[in-house]
Simulated scan of single mutants.
Amino acid sequence: MSRTLIDIHILQTVPPSNLNRDDTGSPKTAVYGGVRRARVSSQAWKRATRVAFDSHLDTSELGTRTKRVVELLAAEINDRAPELSERATDLATETIKAVGIEVKAPEKDKAPQSGYLLFLSRRQIQNLADAAIEAAGADDVKKALKDAKVKDLADRDHSVDISLFGRMVADQADINVDAAAQVAHAISVHPAETEFDYYTAVDDHTGDDETGAGMIGTVEFNSSTLYRYATVDVNRLADNLGSTIAVRRAVEAFLESFVRSMPSGKQNTFANRTLPEAVVVLARESQPINLVGAFESPVRESDRAGRTKRAADALRDEAREIERAYGEQPIDSWVTRLGDDTASLDDLGPNVPLTELVTQLGDLVGSRVEERS
């Protein structure tokens, strides 16, 4: 049975910024190729991508990840059956327990919470609420919920984001969802140094003998040209979603959102939001292939070429070498890019606007899923 894997490669330059900081407030970094690089964690960009889904998908196609799942379910029960408002929290608690999820005792004036973040789709919340409302009329609510097999209700009708990014349920491993998408940590294609911005905040209301500096401090930042990579296993996504139309919408939304999104760290301070210089999408049948090896030798600008051009050339060369050495010829490919510095990437696929890339990728995914079914 043929596989369909979608590899997304991005080159993106960001100005002074602190997209993703560690516990000390410093921009995250990593050593690669013997030099320190700027880094943005995969979790940060997955979160940004999930937030961007709101612009491309209906809320009914998305999920919620929260510890406050009892509160979320109780609100749904209350909306569907207002006459049960006084029992909604208790019904929600028993329903979540019936799924097999441990629920912690509530703090003062708060609903109970799960011991960890729980990812449920909108449809799953609705289905669990319906089961809770039905069980509310039984003499033994716990038995009614067990008979309703509420655990199964939490393991079907997965949302797009759960299907892409997966779900781990510590208490009930059998309702885990294997992620169809993998996102790499973004790293700079060149050495990167952390710098410090010394700032003062002026107090607008001061006396004549005062300097006006009400606060001083420092903010750490760096600037970089990042290589970003993600891959989507279309077969696994189809298994999770079960619908060709849903799979196509999920892949299109993921591509658009991953390309356009950016982690929100310190955006008000640096106004650092940019769009990529280049997006290369390669559809494969064998395995996903991260092309980060193109930058193991760090890119260094010169009088003749800046970082973007050298990075684009290196990415093109790495892709071609992998094709030559391993016979890894993509089944289809596309490029969306800016300016002359990225022109070498046209060797990897037709140069099209992002909207056309998304549509053509959707066509490919739809036809491949139909063939598989």
Rank of each mutant, 00 (worst) to 15 (best):
T244Q: 14
R320Y: 05
N222C: 07
H158A: 10
V160A: 13
R36F: 00
D346I: 05
Q126A: 15
R37Q: 05
I101V: 15
T342E: 01
A180P: 04
S60R: 14
S367A: 15
P298C: 08
N351H: 13
P15L: 15
D171H: 10
N272C: 12
D209F: 13
H9S: 13
I8P: 00
G115A: 09
E107I: 11
T355D: 15
A135V: 04
L315R: 01
S344Y: 02
F53Q: 00
V177A: 11
D147I: 02
L91C: 12
A154W: 01
K67I: 05
R368G: 15
V292Y: 01
I175S: 08
R236N: 12
V292T: 06
D152W: 00
K146D: 13
S159A: 12
D90F: 03
T225R: 12
A201G: 14
S114E: 02
R248E: 15
A294K: 00
I175K: 09
P350A: 14
P288G: 09
G63L: 03
P191S: 11
E323R: 15
P82A: 05
T66R: 08
D152C: 03
D239F: 01
E61F: 07
L275W: 09
N240E: 07
V14K: 04
L72H: 02
A148M: 03
E371I: 12
H185D: 01
D171C: 09
A314Q: 07
